[in-house]
């Protein structure tokens, strides 16, 4: 049982890394002492800390962790290590929702709630369509992916259609938000988002054994006592819900859900029970760190965090692929 000890070691290291990234995100440029002092005092940095850095770190934590867990879940069900949280067409649906709300001008009515609300609504719409289509196929993973790709394409075309009607200035804002953005979420969302994110995630944590078995394919999974259609349905729904929440909170942040499970699988092995937790911590760490880069690399100019995860993640993935052969 050497793998178990290794898991404990790796998890401990991951938690330490996560804590370091959180401290970095909160105390960057100020030091930990100042941070704690300012937290309890109403000075200038205290304001920044409480109103900007803490909420932002919380969202990066929730989104990063959820993307990691979604990635693991979908990779197992689809039996494809390259699957990621947006595989089922969620990104297309969310973009459509937001483009629609921009063109109709819902921001004027819903204010800060417009993007999160319509992003989530669009994502859930695409999931609902994929589900309706998959029902006849008993939620067969391969047909679900196919439906997801098609639905995503159709929605993307609608997005381009809407963009061709939009004023370029408005279009720019929408595009930038879609590229991944942790900066603009309203603090008012946080009390709502914490349970909304944590409940589906903690349910997913309990399906490690089933994910192990589902990765052997539908037939073998059934022989081992799992009822695949039921789990496909439930797990897809949970992970889509999470991915939809992620999009609604921060736009489309690529690579986290792909690369974090990939790297951790190489380190701690394929067992999903541990991998789920490790990917949650790893995803949160990776996104918080990427966000620190996006905030301070070219300070005061901010980079879109999706660009940072893409570049950082892309290089790590390439490195791993080259090293393997």
């Amino acid at each position: 049982m050497r793998r178990k000890q290794k898991s404990v070691v790796v998890l401990t290291i991951l938690v330490c890394l996560l804590l370091v990234s959180i401290l970095l995100s909160l105390a960057y440029g100020k030091g930990i002492g100042v941070m704690f002092h300012s937290f309890f005092n109403n000075d200038g940095f205290g304001l920044i800390l409480r109103k900007i850095r803490i909420p932002r770190t919380i969202i990066a934590f929730l989104v990063g962790g959820s993307l990691g867990v979604c990635g693991v879940t979908l990779q197992s069900i689809l039996r494809n290590p390259l699957a990621e949280p947006y595989t089922l067409g969620i990104a297309g649906g969310a973009s459509f929702g937001i483009a629609l709300s921009t063109i109709i001008g819902f921001q004027r009515i819903f204010g800060a709630f417009a993007n999160p609300l319509f992003g989530f609504g669009g994502a859930m719409l695409s999931v609902a369509i994929v589900f309706a289509l998959s029902k006849k196929r008993f939620f067969d993973p391969n047909s679900m992916v196919l439906f997801g790709v098609v639905v995503s394409l159709v929605f993307s075309s609608f997005v381009f259609f809407l963009f061709s009607l939009l004023d370029p200035d408005k279009m720019q804002t929408t595009l930038m938000w879609l590229m991944g953005d942790l900066s603009s979420l309203d603090i008012a969302f946080i009390p709502m988002y914490i349970p909304a994110f944590l409940i589906p995630t903690s349910i997913l944590f309990f399906f490690g054994k089933e994910l192990d078995i589902l990765s052997l394919g539908r037939e073998k999974a059934q022989y081992l006592g799992v009822n695949p259609p039921r789990f496909y349905k439930g797990l897809f729904l949970l992970s889509s819900l999470l991915a939809g929440l992620c999009v609604s909170a921060s736009g489309i942040i690529g690579f986290v859900g792909l690369i974090v499970p990939h790297i951790l699988r190489n380190i701690i092995g394929a067992g999903h029970t541990v991998l789920l937790i490790a990917s949650y911590i790893g995803g949160a760490f990776f996104l918080i760190l990427s966000d620190v880069f996006s905030r301070y690399l070219l300070y005061p100019v901010e980079l879109p965090v999706g660009v940072v995860t893409g570049i950082l993640g892309g290089f790590i993935l390439l490195f791993l692929l080259i090293r393997r052969k």
Partner: peptide, 8 residues
């Protein structure tokens, strides 16, 4: 029986 993952 195949899986893309390296279980022990």
């Amino acid at each position: 029986t195949e899986t893309p993952f390296s279980f022990t």
